Amino acid sequence: MRPAALDAPRIRASDRRFGLLLLAPSVLLLLLVGLFPLVYTLVVSFQQITLFEVDTSFAGLANYRMLLSDERLWESLLHTAILFSIALPLELALGLAMAQLFLERLPGRQIFIALLVLPTVIAPLVAGAVWRLLLDHRYGPVNQIVGWLWGEEAVLLWTVNPLLVYPAILMAEVWQWTPFMFLILLAALTNVDRSLTEAAEIDGAGFWLTFRKVVLPAIWPVMAVALLIRGLDLARIFDVVYALTGGGPGTMTETISIYTYVLGFRQFETSYTGAIAFLVIAILTVLVVGAVKRMGLAR
């Protein structure tokens, strides 16, 4: 008789093959849903498909060469970078401050947390439409409040005035997504070992020193993931800007997502849109890899 120990590797190999067989349909479905559109877009980007012409012959790098001279494309990337560089630090700072405030056992804490989280469950397009009504120069309550504080009627064209469109977008974006950062950071702060902070206080460390030397290193992995998630979301910002300004005035607030939408679904420059998509993918890949290494998330 064969010892049971000799049959164990064969049983484990059989179980592994059976497990892979069970996973195969799911993996194939994911590849079909996720990989096929990506490959198809890459193929289309080397063709010349437009509203008036369906040329599926190989066009070489013609679409990619057009990217270099497309000023509107680079302006849209700049607009996206401006919103990214302002909104992300604001959401982090406000979310962290709110999390620190609600770390204490306040009366009605659970109710207030539930109310604060409500903006994140609203569809971004709906949130943008709501803020457009709030900022309306004739009937919006924001202008009325500004007028009360200013002492006279205020007519601020938030979605038209070039000096006010970015503050309007940032107000809507920060209002909706700061609670997301707040929730994640509150969970991280709740799990910080209190014995460490108490030991720092006993040693005479103040709040800021304790936060910088004890709390921040403890919550950094969670904070880094939250920054990465929000950063990727901000890089493709579309709904709020489209609902508030439509990319205007002119193309002043047109982000890369809005520009791609205009080219692909209004002007039907299908192949050129595919080239832009892969340019954005390349840029985001480089930035994400750099951020992951910088944040110490890659081990």
Rank of each mutant, 00 (worst) to 15 (best):
L287T: 01
E104G: 05
L77C: 14
P37V: 12
E153P: 04
F207A: 03
M223C: 10
V165Y: 00
S85H: 11
H137G: 01
S271Y: 03
M1G: 09
G140Y: 08
G247A: 05
F36W: 03
E201S: 05
L35T: 11
I86G: 15
A59G: 15
V215C: 05
S57C: 05
I82A: 15
G34S: 08
G108L: 07
A277I: 13
P119M: 12
R10N: 07
T270F: 07
R109G: 03
A235L: 14
F265H: 08
T245S: 13
V222R: 00
E173D: 15
R105E: 15
I258G: 04
V286S: 09
I122W: 00
W150K: 10
L23N: 06
W175I: 01
R17N: 01
F238W: 05
P37Q: 14
L287D: 03
P107F: 07
V160M: 11
N161P: 02
A114Y: 00
Q144D: 14
V289Y: 10
F102W: 07
R12V: 15
L67R: 07
V54L: 11
T260L: 14
K293R: 15
Q267D: 07
L78P: 09
I256A: 11
M66D: 14
E254Y: 00
V160T: 13
I169T: 02
T260W: 12
A282I: 09
A129F: 03
W74G: 06
L29H: 12
A24D: 04
I49L: 13
L135E: 02
L32M: 11
F268D: 10
T80K: 08
I256L: 10
T41K: 05
I237F: 13
P162S: 07
V33M: 07
G264Y: 10
A5Q: 11
W220I: 01
Y259A: 08
S195I: 04
F182T: 02
A59N: 14
V241H: 06
W158S: 07
F58I: 04
Y166I: 15
Q48P: 06
R2T: 08
V225H: 01
H137W: 03
P119F: 01
P25H: 11
E254W: 01
G250H: 06
V241A: 04
I113K: 00
V286N: 12
V292R: 03
E71C: 04
L149N: 15
L287R: 00
F238Y: 08
L23A: 15
P167R: 09
L35F: 11
L35Q: 09
W148Y: 06
F182V: 00
L73K: 01
L189T: 03
I145E: 12
V174N: 08
L157R: 08
T210N: 11
L51Q: 13
W148L: 15
P162A: 09
H137D: 08
V286D: 12
L30V: 13
G250C: 10
L297I: 10
G248C: 11
P107C: 06
I202C: 01
V288M: 05
G290I: 14
L297N: 10
L183I: 03
A298N: 09
V117C: 00
A218H: 05
L103T: 06
A99G: 10
I184A: 11
T253I: 05
N63K: 13
E53W: 06
Q48H: 14
I122V: 12
I283P: 05
L149Q: 12
A154R: 06
S76E: 13
M252T: 15
A187P: 07
P119A: 10
T178C: 08
W74R: 02
A298W: 13
N143S: 02
